[in-house]
Design a protein around this nucleic acid. Sequence first.
DNA 1: TTTCTCATGTAAGCAGTTACATGATTTC
DNA 2: GAAATCATGTAACTGCTTACATGAGAAA
Lengths: 205, 205
Amino acid sequence: MKSGESASKFALLGVLSLKPASGYDIKQFVQGSIGHFWSESYGRIYPLLKELADEGLIVQQRGTKASGRSERQVYAITVAGEMALRQWLEHSPRNESPRSELLLKLFFCDHVAPEASAQHVREKKQLEEKHIAIYEQTARHIQQRYPAHPGLPYWLMTLNFGRHRSQALVAWCDETLATLSQLEKKQAKEKTKAKTKAKTKRGTV
Amino acid sequence: MKSGESASKFALLGVLSLKPASGYDIKQFVQGSIGHFWSESYGRIYPLLKELADEGLIVQQRGTKASGRSERQVYAITVAGEMALRQWLEHSPRNESPRSELLLKLFFCDHVAPEASAQHVREKKQLEEKHIAIYEQTARHIQQRYPAHPGLPYWLMTLNFGRHRSQALVAWCDETLATLSQLEKKQAKEKTKAKTKAKTKRGTV
DNA sequence: TTTCTCATGTAAGCAGTTACATGATTTC
DNA sequence: GAAATCATGTAACTGCTTACATGAGAAA
């Protein structure tokens, strides 16, 4: 598998490198453990699992009807799969294309009242504060549950990334809200002035 | 136009709300002015311009052969377009799906030497530092060039967003690099220990 | 004269989400 | 018996990038 290929494949490979899992399990894991910086949908997971199996990077385990429910298709990583994963891990990550709808709206927002933008920023702040709480909670949780796991320091790094980022964004939100309310005041004043002027004019005519 | 539609359309509309432009101009503007949080490709721009024109949100200006080069198709926003833009601006922005290849690699990196990950983090740090320099430079530049433009405060907000974010990420990089080098030392020690043990064993046999 | 920038567009294809179809088992 | 959860998969669609085709004028 070429390292230029979609990161999704390697994400699945990474999850399977921890322990064998089904498509369903993978989805759960991604949502629960790396959900703050990654996502996968069933629509991709199941086809990709087949491709990975065709390439010999994972194998389907047999006899895994598990809890007696509908057939669970459990996959495990192969030695070839581990090699491919390691190779990919060593390559420099592609830089993500930056697309923020919030900033786009903010950039063009002199077409609307500052209050509308302020609302967006307040929502953003709330969201980031919620994220911070989740990061801290998760960090505490995994430190308790996996105190000796070799992966723990790396998991904490990703959480710390989120914490730093969210804290910075909260600070930005505060600054931005202050600026926006100043702008609003200024605009209100100008409006009043304009009205007064108009009145005076009418009065004198 | 429904507000649920792709933000790309509104991005074009936003650019055209500043002044009439061709597809080529739009691309230049996006790269130069909002490139730190948005991107558009020709492959989207030209078809979208046609769609916007069909919807009556923009109109093609005639007689714009401009510099005598090949035909420039210059578009201008209509009143309907301005209304659609305003409506979109007031809607809460959709939250972006978080996908960071760097964090994905970091999360699974106990499969490789810490040095490989450290390299990724160092590159990230360099990139963010470069961004900070660009943000500051751009901020100074537009304050000088457009001191009275009504959009200026908002443009500065988006730059400030980038600054906060990048600074936080640089701080995270430093912390992470420190942790990684500690991990490396620890691993090296364990290796040495294992080797000494092996030697002793061999010596005694 | 060759190369660079300006300029517009199309086609192919990948990546990814969402909706849908199906059905079993568990829980209320 | 209804609803929630477990579980796998497909199809359609959207969004977006990349590569390609074309051609003019400017600069080297």
